[in-house]
Simulated assay, not measured.
Amino acid sequence: MARAAVLAGLSAYLPPRVVPNAHFADLRLSDEWISTRTGISERRWVQGQSTSDISVEAGAEALKSYGSDDIDLVILATQSPDHFAPSSAPAVASRLGLGGVPAFDLAAACSGFLYGLATASSLIRTGQAERILFIAAETASLYLNPKDRNTAPIFADGAGAVVLRAGEDDEPGSLGGFDLGSDGDLAHLVLVPGGGSRARADGWALDDRAHLVMQGRELFVNAVTRMSESSTKVLEEAGWKPDEVDLVVGHQANRRILEAVGHELGIEPERMYINIDHTGNTVAATIPIALTEAVREGALRPGHRVLLTAFGAGATWGSTLLRWPEISLA
């Protein structure tokens, strides 16, 4: 059998501060208006925490889930690092007691988890690593303009992490083929024009160029199209039919986007896992957070065929498949 990357540990972390839709009443946005258009009722925002702080929380739990801290490499997918330089991953690895292992950041916005899985899988398949801790973490709230009705209610904070180990490609948890893509002509859809998360967490003054801006309608259309096309491609390459997929865990950007993707794929709503109602859009972290919650709820069980798909700023997108393994959550 061919060497493969196998999912062997999983965790999620959400900051303790809960921000309900009522928080946005001053923007003349009602709970009904927000929930109807986005599917979000509440979200979590950090207070005094940076991206590396919540990365350590998720990473520690993933190592407990795996049952070992014998790790060769750490990857951190984030669009909101502590600093523009240096990378946050080495600091996270150090705080987790992982010594001098190689560590680096990866930035692919809401597609970061798929890009990171593909990168980690390649490193394991080619023998460059045996065990990788891969964390996706974001403090998106620190990049928001609190007066922007288009973005303030949507984006949120959180972290998720997985441990991948070397194994064989017929094992449960073995990552299948990947489809990745990008289109730089769509960079204007989601953009922070100009300022990392540590400065923002410490209350440094920022101008309007440091806030996230979004073109919602155009983003919606492109997200549905690209996620559907990418998902179809990996399904066809694996020889899976849509009705053979037990659960689709997509990037949690908007409930209506996920429902539209399910419609395009011919997959019933009950097989589209959605948890955005209480998490909001945590950018790169949405999928590992959703996977963790799906396991805890019993919606995701060993042997299930799972489709992962995402679309994000850049624009970037990606998809992959796996059969769900036995995983013990910490």
Rank of each mutant, 00 (worst) to 15 (best):
G298P: 12
S50E: 00
V190F: 03
G67N: 08
A89K: 11
L164M: 01
S197T: 05
S80C: 14
L144H: 05
D277I: 08
V92I: 05
H251Q: 01
R17G: 09
R17T: 13
A315M: 03
G314Y: 03
T286P: 03
M1D: 02
I132A: 02
A103M: 05
F178I: 07
S230A: 06
T309M: 02
Y143I: 03
E42H: 10
V283H: 01
H188G: 15
S88T: 14
S35K: 12
L98E: 09
A156F: 00
A109G: 02
G173F: 01
L206Q: 08
Y143T: 01
E326D: 13
D183P: 00
S11C: 13
H188K: 14
A330I: 00
R301V: 08
H304T: 13
E236Y: 07
T51G: 06
Y273D: 09
A120G: 07
V163P: 08
E32P: 09
G250N: 08
L191C: 07
G100I: 00
D70P: 08
Q128H: 14
G9E: 01
G318Y: 03
A315N: 00
L29Y: 00
A25N: 09
K233G: 04
D31F: 00
F178C: 10
G196A: 02
I75D: 01
P16A: 15
G312Y: 00
A313G: 10
A93F: 05
S87H: 12
E244C: 04
L322R: 07
E57A: 15
L98A: 11
S122A: 09
L186I: 03
H263N: 09
P20E: 11
D246S: 10
N145D: 15
S87N: 11
G262N: 05
D277Q: 15
N281E: 02
L29K: 08
A62M: 07
H211V: 09
T78K: 07
E326W: 09
S80Y: 01
L10N: 07
R271N: 08
G280S: 07
L291A: 12
R37V: 13
V18T: 14
N254T: 02
T119Q: 11
D208G: 12
A140G: 11
G127Y: 15
L175N: 02
P242Y: 04
K233D: 02
A136G: 10
P102M: 09
